[in-house]
Amino acid sequence: MLKLDVLNLAKRFGARKVFESINFSLTPGESIAIVGPNGSGKSTLLRLIIGLNIPTKGKVVFSDDGEPLEFDAYRRRLALVSPYLSLYGSLTGKENLRFFAKVNGDNISDQEIDSLLAQVGLQGRGEDFVSAYSSGMLQRLKYAVALAKNAEILMLDEPSANLDESGKEAVSDIIESRRKNSILIIATNEKEEYALAERQCQLGQ
């Protein structure tokens, strides 16, 4: 079984300490909300967990049945939606979906693309260039890309950023549909989103 261990993690940018001694473990079905004010290091913690930043101290281990996984092995099983992650403005929504699926090793059919777009409420807009999308539509497309990956580790940084009411509903549907089989990590400072996860990890104290 997949498992994530965050062990005594600390990050420092020069003299500035972002956080220290962060500890938690998650298995599929479990969820955690990383909460804290702006600048408390929520996004930094997510990057450290993904392995795209080097911790000052401590470590992050993804393991499967006790076997530690290499970056490329758990990367395939991980999806992220974040304000720091963007999609290609010079490609259409469909081209984005097709590209990300292909470089990840999957051929995705047109029906699958259509159903993904419908799931995030972007039906009929798949042929438009992403540069012409509104920020809410872009956020929806990010969910479609994350869903296409069929990931067991779902990381959401500010999950409902830029979304309207129907978008927020679509997101909570997605989260509920994935909750049982996924490790869910949500970084947020919205009070009502704390409830999306069972546990909390408070930063910035």
Binding site: I50, L52, Y84, L85, S86, Y88
Partner: peptide, 8 residues
């Protein structure tokens, strides 16, 4: 910001 998407 597409680098992050590409890395994953």
């Amino acid at each position: 910001g597409t680098a992050l998407a590409l890395k994953l």
